[in-house]
Design a protein around this nucleic acid. Structure first.
Lengths: 120, 120
DNA sequence: CCAACATTACCACGACTATGTCAAGGTTTG
DNA sequence: CAAACCTTGACATAGTCGTGGTAATGTTGG
């Protein structure tokens, strides 16, 4: 029933997507990608989900965001109340983005990674 | 020059907003609210910022989100590239929200808090 | 001048993120 | 049936988030 049926099992999916099996389960727990299950409970990843997994991986790497960030975005997408509250807060006198957004938190975000490099 | 001038100093701002001075600096580092500075470098919080701080606090508490979540939202608001990439990922076959969004990650999100309660 | 307050730079700590690994126990398949 | 694979659950670890302190040093205001 391996690659013949309804989807790839977790190890197969892992190989074609670049995620580890462990992380596939974790991604599922985060509510981002939930594969179907076989009658006996095996995860079965379909083509669309495999593609989504690859895209997700690229997204995280390209922008250096975390799963929790995407999970939060999903949460906003799902809740109008949350989304509106956040957007309203953000758009209320946006304290001119040039002041801080680009430079300040960028430094904030980068410091952690620099710690690693700084060891060398 | 305390409450007379251009804005409240950090301790004063802390009192009227409910944040601790420590957290006001942290919020600033996260790129969310950057007050003006006096000539000698003292932070000076204006009325609008004080209000924003109160609103932010309420936002975080009401929806149980983190500063980093709001920071991420700000990042999305500031970068069309990021925003579009995330939105595109989310809207691509959204694996039916009912399946997981509401229930699954909600449990995921709540488990941590339950750990605290579970101790009692 | 000096008490009161600010600043930055650390140390600390518990909780959460991201990962890996291992154990105990079902499933699939040759 | 046995090897290979899956499941959940637990343990482990490095790093981040959210907070609170403290120290060393500069600023303000009476």
């Amino acid at each position: 029933m391996l690659a013949s049926m309804n989807g790839l099992t977790i190890n197969e999916a892992a190989q074609t997507t670049g995620w580890s099996p462990r992380m596939l389960r974790y991604v599922e727990q985060a509510g981002l990608i939930a594969p179907e299950r076989s009658a006996s409970g095996y995860r079965l990843y379909g083509p669309a989900q495999l593609q989504r997994l690859r895209t997700l991986k690229e997204l995280l790497e390209r922008f250096d965001v975390g799963l929790s960030d995407v999970a939060f975005a999903a949460r906003m997408a799902a809740s109008a109340e949350l989304r509106e509250a956040v957007q309203e807060w953000l758009t209320a006198q946006p304290h001119r983005p040039e002041d801080v957004s680009a430079d300040d938190w960028l430094r904030f975000e980068q410091e952690k990674h620099q710690k690693l490099l700084a060891v060398a």
